[in-house]
Amino acid sequence: MTAIAKPAGPQRRRTRPLAQACLYAVLGALALVYIFPFLVQVATSFKPDAEAAANTVALIPQTFTFAAYDRLFAHSDFPLWFANSAVVTVAATLGRVFFASLAGYALARLRFRGRSLVFALIVAVMAVPSVVLLIPKFLVLNQLGLYDSYAGMIVPLLVDAAGVFIMKNFFESIPVSIEEQARIDGAGPFRTYWSVVLPMARPALVTIVILSFQGSWNELSHFIVATQSPELTTLTKGVASLSSGQLSQGTQYPVKLAAAAIMTIPVAILFFVFQKHIVNKSEGAVKG
């Protein structure tokens, strides 16, 4: 309180302890609101069914049990869903990193007729809302005979326009001189791209990896319209079916919440590993 009584110069006004305390109190309360649901989720997944329904807030289970996890891993298709999601996500991420950087490089550096048209089309495609594509995607997959197959799940996810856009912007921001040296030394465009440009593009490639991993892992609507057989169910589709009541009886919250918690782990790991990068990425996106 003494700080307020002092003659308030510009510097002093910024560090009033009371204001600081308020700031931390508000932030702390908000952080609690944001974190608490996830704590409840994890806690509930270790409770028996009856306790989960009766006491929904307690963070420490009275009876600690692995029953929900045991049921998921030993007595359900959950491991299969997880494997399907992993296969699709890895394939889609590899594809996007390669195709987006390749096309981004061409659009940024190589001079060819129709380049600006191609770029304009890619930007236009970015504006099409994905929900509009639900029915159309099914029609085309069906027409091509890709419906209900791994190919139908993966191929449409191999490319995304936003990734091409990010890579193009990145290549335009790095100096051209090193590539020119390689070209003078006789390297063709692909060699220049592969062994000179790509190693320099690591920060942008990490961005693409994060975006496409998160996007493919969390994708739901594409898999709904692209598949129907149980063997091709992904985590998102499987957990959604758990939620909309395909369990035999009761609410069975521990099983549902355990499933949701496990499907969050891979993206959470990705998030914590690349945390610094994610924060900087959004900065770059605004600047660019």
């Binding site: 195709f99 390749l102 061409a106 190589l110 001079r111 060819f112 191609v118 029915i135 490319v159 465009p189």
Partner: peptide, 30 residues
């Protein structure tokens, strides 16, 4: 530069084909 032209189209081809096949054609079909 002429080599660049071919390379440019080859490099962007996968993106064009996949976006065309799973975005443009579907929208027209729908």
């Amino acid at each position: 530069r002429r080599g660049e032209g071919t390379a440019g189209w080859l490099f962007t081809l996968p993106v064009i084909v996949i976006l065309g096949l799973f975005l443009l054609v579907p929208v027209l079909m729908a």
